[in-house]
Design a binder for these strands. Structure first.
Lengths: 136, 136
DNA sequence: TCTTTTCTTTAGCTACGCTAAGTATATCGG
DNA sequence: CCGATATACTTAGCGTAGCTAAAGAAAAGA
């Protein structure tokens, strides 16, 4: 029942992290999209939606919210007028890093309580889960 | 940056599983609560909310929805009139198993594509993540 | 008895996810 | 060149999940 346990574990982990993210003033979904914008350079709306495995309108709203708060900016493509490029602002990059540090601080406390062996296990498993989540 | 990668991995895995659960006609949050009701015997609302790391009103609504669909039943406690006991119905148990089988089927296909070593890794990591999510 | 505590629900808000439909731009066949 | 189709994104509207604040009902204590 690996599937069950992974599912349940993911749900509970996210609920826990959600609280930390809430304190940082940004939701998990936005944070995840923002990190793509920050680290994968300017991306189009379509690329972002695909990267986040989310329908296009969902990404439109996520970006609209972040644009209102000055975390990202939109630019129309010069060649293709339909395409919108998303770029993280300096503030967006700063917020991302701050939120990440905050998560890191709380999670680090938890991780420190683990066996070094468990920690190595998690590090290795994260990659596998990542691949699992991005399949299909 | 294990925290980041775990966070991102959990988000993407859940988004993927959400689609499967949707096809099964039950959401991830309900499924998770239902499995507690099924496997941890009758539980009170408070216990359920605590087990799922969710505020009480959230659990009230989850249970209300599942009660409407005949997946669980409520009973007042004989001794303490404030307490409500939640019991999974036969239908609820059936639905849970069906949804689990469905998830299992899709995830199994993914898992089969993994190295046996990766699979063992995931099995071991699930327990660690579980503990991580249930902390504090 | 009156107050306080505990368990649950109601009301109301924000946010995320979806589909269906609309708009604007590109592209292709005639 | 022009109409039809295809693509990229947005708008509208719905359902669900999460929260807090406050209310209701029952238990426990002064």
């Amino acid at each position: 029942m690996i599937a069950d346990r992974l599912h349940s574990a993911a749900i509970h982990l996210l609920r826990r992290l959600r609280k930390e993210d809430g304190r940082a003033g940004i939701s998990a979904a936005r944070l995840s999209a923002l990190s793509v914008a920050v680290f994968a350079g300017p991306v189009t709306m379509g690329q972002l939606a695909a990267a986040e495995h989310v329908a296009a309108p969902t990404m439109t709203r996520l970006i609209a919210g972040m644009e209102r708060e000055g975390l990202v900016e939109r630019d129309r493509d010069f060649e293709d007028g339909r395409v919108v490029w998303i770029r993280a602002t300096a503030k967006g990059t700063r917020i991302l890093c701050a939120a990440r540090d905050r998560r890191l601080a709380t999670l680090t406390a938890d991780l420190d309580a683990l066996d070094p062996a468990d920690l190595r296990l998690l590090a290795a498993a994260a990659g596998v889960i990542e691949r699992l989540g991005s399949e299909s």
